[in-house]
Design a protein around this nucleic acid. Structure first.
Length: 927
RNA sequence: GCGGAUGUGGCGGAAUUGGUAGACGCGCUAGACUUAGGAUCUAGUGCCGCAAGGCGUGGGGGUUCGAGUCCCUUCAUCCGCACCA
């Protein structure tokens, strides 16, 4: 036996655990560095080879930073509440806590085998009451705060109440729901219930009637980021729109800050773009249009409020459209049109979100019979309803400008409404001219202005006349925060007189109760409706919904700083020391969910003084997906005969996925294939000339159903964890998606064996020389030190693996076993292959873990060369390679070139027009 | 429709600032050793060509002494958003 990775890896994993090698504490004498992985949801399927990619990268970086003398926080935990465990519970009756516990144990086992340097003493689980106590605590805090637009931050509701008592709400500028204006005396005369209901409009966690994404199959509402193209992200079930009373988080209050501070984050541009898109800032104006035939009790005309990004086109407005759900529809529809409008509203209600999206080409709508008045021309504008206007965006109403908006144009053409051009530059007979460029026409006082000036002018005019104002609108919606499910955090909320109140902090955690079934009750209540005594000691009923998945993951990075603190979410000292995450590695699938919510959550905690940094994740890297590489066998139709890839075109065949684990370099192991599926036991094979069965392949998602799943466990058993770690990195750039193909792993494994051999003689006995290394050996070493350091700093781990291979190949060629070289090599390799590094470090006579060493310093002196080989090209084509002394100048080189026979041969007697010499790099002769 | 990413040998990929395209590894070919090889070692391996030489970084055009890299244009694949007013 030579390099016995199984034994070595077990030994050092035990050593790390016994010695608590990676346990960290706050140490003000050292600079901190916080490396975080997106913690996993422990699914029943366990980890496949794609999951640990990011963990390995962050582990390498953590170990590197430790060698660079940083105090590194590198924790891990579990996002343990969630739907799959609960769905499984419904099917099997197994308590989700049990499934979750089992899955966590399996994950931990799998992770331990890879040799990560996590400080497991800091582990968190979102389903642990000691953890979710603090999730509930933050919820209460959100409930007790409102967002003051004047100070642009969250403030206690107490201060809001004080203001109401003093001056009513007229001077309050809050991110809030629409709320009527009241005076201080009105406030004081209100009942407790009335006051509480008003405050709900202001709270950052609030309870309101809202349009939700309802998923009947899952029996719960979903947040916008949990729905994709009308289907639930988890499970792919249809989702419909429904009005329901739900808990929401006022994320929209932070839209501007979430957008602005993206600038200073070291995230990829594409991820920032996704967030920018999701937040969806648009600048425009709110304009009020009076409606003729509807007035309130005091005789004030009703007003349609619209939001537009093109107020400059206001004179091109020829009609108005309300969303079918708009509250004014009922009030303004004239009796004559009542029936058809009601019909239309019924129809749209029936359509699911998915149908609406799928069917965007059919133009539908109804006239309400009402007319609005143009704020400048006084023209009568017919008011329509149509589902192309969304209730949930802007004000749910638009001024239609068919000449300059393609949707309005299509609608106008369909219903034969007038089109009036107001910005020159397009051809209105052909279609709308949406470009915001051109000169205003047919627009009264705006005529002759360009779009930009016209926009400015019209807004000031609107403001002067009190008919509108400048407004920045965001697409980002408040997050629906309740789920009608069991396996999540209970809300610390009870209801008195149907008004929600939060529990006192000292009643936390509010522990998830036991239920006899995980299904909704007969009354249609969530599963918590089945819990016995689900009420406060005073007898008030508790909330029946639970919190969504993103609740527990929104502040977990804070909890790691001080995971066992029972008095605070995080102590001031721990938070001030660790501040925030320096490096966060995870998948891009969380771009609009977790990464928005946790930024929001963090900003709120920053406003309230709980944490000291206003952004949670300074630098973020999205690792690419590892795709599966599937293999196929080709069955001749209506037979049990399988034909090899090279011959399959001669037959009528069906490609069938075959387990990649019984295929090697696309050659099928026929014996294993027969055993793999009894159906194929008697199969016949048509083989290649060389007697092998060659499989086809395709790059697909890694998935059980495609038989292309490779687990880290299998790889570790065959090659060891160090090989797995290095091969995962060797596959390609961290951020790119790339297919997993086990075939290539031999190269990395061979490398580790070659490394082992540098330290051992033919009899596999350790054999280290104390001789002083020569210049060539030092050069190889320092070239590698430099390369590895640079590569790690830019997260180019694939190229560092190559650099190690080159280094070991070169040292192997020199048969170098000199201590001074090998010691440093082991240190720089240890982040990548920690087990073999520890073993070799030990062989070098060290007693401590190699992780306590210091990253060696690169010395440029060892790299200087006497001669430099210059590629010599003629007209840009490389023809020759000539050595020149390193200190040669341009003139020296030119002079020598003209004496060189080969150069003269290529010149064929011509005189060069020009000679370009870039010192130390190239020579180019222009003929 | 909008926004983003990617395109280099049979395959994964390298080339960090405009300066030797294909490092490193897999695979393949030949050889050595071996009872044997899915072990190990040596050599070769972008394409065309016997060769000289020519062609080569998705396609077309440009800037430059010199372009995978910069500019324009176009195609393909993937991802995100989408009646967002």
């Amino acid at each position: 036996m030579e390099y016995n990775f199984t034994e070595i890896e077990k030994k050092w994993q035990k050593f790390w655990e016994d010695n608590q090698t990676f346990r960290v504490t706050e140490d003000p004498s050292m600079p901190k560095y916080y490396v975080l992985d997106m913690f996993p949801y422990p699914s029943g399927a366990g980890l496949h080879v794609g999951h640990p990619l990011g963990y390995i990268a962050s582990d390498i970086y953590s170990r590197y930073k430790k060698l660079k003398r940083y105090n590194v926080l590198h924790p891990m935990g579990y996002d343990a509440f969630g739907l799959p465990a609960e769905q499984y519970a419904i099917q099997t009756g197994q308590h989700p806590a049990v499934t979750t516990e089992n899955n966590i144990r399996r994950y931990r086992k799998q992770m331990d085998k890879i040799g990560f340097c996590y400080d497991w003493s800091r582990e968190v689980r979102t389903c642990d009451p000691k953890y979710y106590k603090w999730t509930q605590w933050v919820f209460i805090k959100l409930f007790k705060h409102w967002f003051n637009k004047k100070t642009n931050k969250a403030e206690p509701v107490k201060s809001l109440i004080a203001e109401f008592e003093r001056n009513g709400n007229s001077a309050v500028e809050a991110s809030s729901d629409k709320c009527r204006i009241f005076s201080a005396s009105e406030w004081k005369s209100m009942s407790e219930k009335e006051q509480q209901l008003i405050l709900l409009n202001y709270r950052l966690a609030y309870y309101a009637d809202t349009m939700v994404n309802w998923c009947p199959a899952l029996g719960t509402v979903l947040a916008n980021d949990e729905v994709k193209e009308g289907y639930s992200l988890r499970g792919g079930h249809p989702v419909e729109q429904k009005k329901m009373k739900q808990w929401l988080l006022r994320v929209s209050a932070y839209a501007e800050r979430l957008l602005d501070s993206l600038e200073k984050l070291d995230w990829s541009e594409s991820l920032k773009d996704i967030q920018k898109n999701w937040i969806g800032r648009s600048e425009g104006a709110v304009i009020n249009f009076k409606v003729d035939n509807a007035a309130d009790k005091k005789g004030r005309k009703a007003e349609i409020e619209v939001f537009t990004t093109r107020p400059d086109t206001i004179f091109g407005c020829t009609y108005m459209v309300l969303a079918p759900e708009h509250e004014l529809v009922e009030k303004i529809t004239t009796p004559q049109y009542n029936i058809q409008v009601e019909e239309y509203i019924e129809e749209t209600k029936k359509r699911t979100e998915r149908e609406r999206i799928a069917d965007t080409k059919t133009i539908t709508g109804r006239f309400t019979g009402a007319y609005a008045e143009h704020p400048f021309s006084g023209e009568k504008l017919p008011v329509w309803i149509s589902d192309y206007v969304l209730a949930g965006y802007g004000t749910g109403a638009i001024m239609a400008v068919p000449a300059h908006d393609s949707r309005d144009f299509d609608f106008a053409k369909h219903f034969d409404l007038p089109v009036r051009e107001v910005v020159s530059g397009g051809d209105i007979s052909q279609g709308s001219y949406d470009n915001p460029e051109g000169i205003l026409i047919n627009s009264d006082f705006l005529n002759g202005l360009n779009v930009e000036d016209a926009t400015e002018r019209i807004i000031s005019e609107l403001e002067k006349r009190g008919r509108g104002y400048k407004k920045i609108n965001y697409r980002l919606r408040d997050a629906i925060f309740s789920r009608q499910r069991y396996w999540g955090e209970p809300f610390p909320v009870c209801y008195k007189n149907e008004v929600p109140y939060v529990l006192d902090e000292d009643q936390l955690p509010l522990v998830l109760p036991e239920v006899d079934s995980y299904l909704p009750t007969e009354k249609g209540e969530p599963p918590l409706g089945r819990a016995k005594n689900w009420q406060t000691p005073e007898g008030y009923p508790l909330e029946l919904s639970t919190m969504p998945g993103f609740a527990g993951s929104s502040a977990y990075y804070i909890r790691y700083m001080d995971p066992n603190n029972n008095n605070e979410l995080v102590s001031k000292e721990a938070n001030r020391y660790w501040e925030n995450v320096d490096l966060y590695i995870g998948g891009t699938e969380h771009a609009t969910g977790h990464l928005i919510y946790s930024r929001f959550w963090n900003k709120f905690l920053y406003d309230t003084g709980v944490v000291c940094r206003d952004e949670p994740f300074k630098k973020l890297i999205n690792q690419g997906m590892i795709q599966g590489r599937s293999n196929f066998v080709y069955r001749v139709k209506n037979s049990n005969k399988f034909v090899s890839l090279g011959l399959k075109d001669n037959f009528d065949v069906t490609p069938i996925h075959v387990d990649v684990n019984i295929v090697n370099n696309d050659i099928l192991n026929i014996d294993l294939f027969r055993k793999w599926n009894p159906e194929y036991f008697d199969a016949e094979f048509i083989l290649e000339e060389d007697g092998t069965y060659r499989c086809g392949y395709a790059i697909e998602k890694m998935s059980k159903s495609l038989y292309n799943v490779v687990t880290p466990d299998d790889i570790i058993e065959k090659y060891g964890a160090d090989t797995l770690r290095m091969y995962e990195m060797f596959l390609g750039p961290l951020e790119q998606s790339k297919p997993w193909d086990t075939s290539g792993i031999d190269g990395v494994h061979k490398f580790l064996r070659k490394l082992w051999n540098l330290f051992h003689n033919e009899k596999n006995e350790p054999c280290i020389s104390n001789e002083t290394p020569g210049a060539d050996e030092l050069k190889i070493l320092h070239k590698t030190i430099k390369k590895i350091e640079e590569d790690i700093e830019r997260f180019s781990f694939n190229t560092s693996v190559s650099a190690f291979m080159i280094c070991v190949n070169d040292l192997g060629a020199l048969k170098c076993n000199k201590r001074q070289i090998l010691e440093k090599l082991v240190i720089i390799l240890s982040p990548f292959a920690p087990h073999i590094a520890e073993e070799l470090w030990h062989i070098l006579g060290k007693k401590e873990s190699v992780s306590t060493a210091t990253f060696p310093e690169f010395k440029s002196g060892f790299l200087t060369e006497d001669y430099i080989q210059y590629p010599v090209s003629f007209n840009g084509k490389t023809r020759l390679k000539i050595d020149f002394p390193a200190d040669y100048d341009k003139e020296d080189i030119e002079r020598d070139l003209m004496k060189n026979d080969d150069v003269l041969k290529y010149l064929k007697g011509q005189k060069p027009k020009k000679i370009i010499v870039v010192k130390g790099r190239i020579v180019n002769i222009v003929v």
